[in-house]
Computed example of a mutant assay.
Amino acid sequence: MVKQIVERLEKVFPNKLELNFSTPFELVVAVVLSAQERDAKVNEVTQELFKRFKTPEDFAQADLEEIEKYINKVSFYGKKAEYIKKISTILVEKYKGEVPKSLKELSELPGIGRKSANMILYNAFGINEGIAVDRHVLRVSQRLGLTKQQKPEKAEQDLMKVVPKEDWGKFSNLLILLGRYICTAQKPKHHQCPLYDLCPSKEL
């Protein structure tokens, strides 16, 4: 069933995030900004932000107030500015300005949890170390009967058992888009869903 899910969704959605980025570091910044915020708003903000700040060194040396000025249209911009400056400083001091390529190291960065680390690893480096389970992935996985867990970390463990490892990142990207546009929390568009005949929740 999982193989069919991936194959069908690939025909409908691109295997990528809707966040705009051109380097692994830009993706880290965009992911921090995307917490409880729409990707479209983040993309609007990063368009100017990445013209002014291009490297971890740029952010690490900047005043917090200047970073805030560029991102004040997103939710919780003050806390996010702190995270970005701290992350940048750590990358400069500990990783020679490079984004680390392991789940453990990424998860230890301020404002980056396991979900975000998985997202960055796959979309920046093509590395499958886990499955990024956000609210969309959790909801769609539950509706498809792939997990009954309510907590993302536990749902991830269920999914890692049934989804082939080479598809972990792709599976997450595709389910995020399905959940965002078709399998929505309220009034899911059942008859537009490419998984309709496979879904045990289609009559709910």
Results as ranks from 00 to 15, higher is better:
1 M>S: 13
5 I>P: 00
8 R>V: 05
13 F>I: 05
17 L>P: 08
23 T>H: 09
23 T>G: 06
23 T>M: 06
24 P>A: 11
32 V>Y: 00
34 S>D: 01
38 R>Y: 05
39 D>Q: 01
42 V>M: 03
42 V>F: 02
48 E>R: 14
50 F>S: 10
50 F>P: 07
50 F>Q: 07
50 F>R: 05
51 K>H: 09
55 T>W: 12
57 E>C: 04
57 E>W: 06
64 L>N: 06
65 E>P: 01
66 E>P: 01
68 E>V: 03
70 Y>C: 00
73 K>I: 03
74 V>Y: 02
75 S>N: 14
76 F>K: 04
77 Y>E: 04
80 K>S: 01
81 A>N: 06
81 A>Y: 07
95 Y>Q: 00
99 V>G: 07
100 P>N: 11
104 K>F: 12
113 G>R: 09
120 I>L: 12
124 A>Q: 12
125 F>Q: 07
125 F>Y: 14
126 G>S: 09
126 G>M: 08
128 N>K: 06
130 G>F: 08
130 G>D: 01
131 I>P: 14
138 L>D: 01
138 L>M: 09
139 R>W: 04
140 V>N: 06
141 S>E: 00
142 Q>L: 11
143 R>D: 05
143 R>Q: 12
146 L>A: 01
146 L>K: 05
146 L>Q: 00
147 T>L: 08
148 K>D: 15
155 A>I: 07
156 E>I: 09
156 E>F: 15
158 D>Y: 04
163 V>L: 13
164 P>E: 13
165 K>T: 12
167 D>K: 13
170 K>T: 15
170 K>D: 08
175 L>E: 01
176 I>F: 08
183 C>H: 00
189 K>Q: 13
189 K>T: 03
190 H>V: 10
191 H>Q: 13
193 C>A: 08
193 C>L: 11
193 C>G: 02
197 D>E: 13
199 C>H: 08
201 S>A: 15
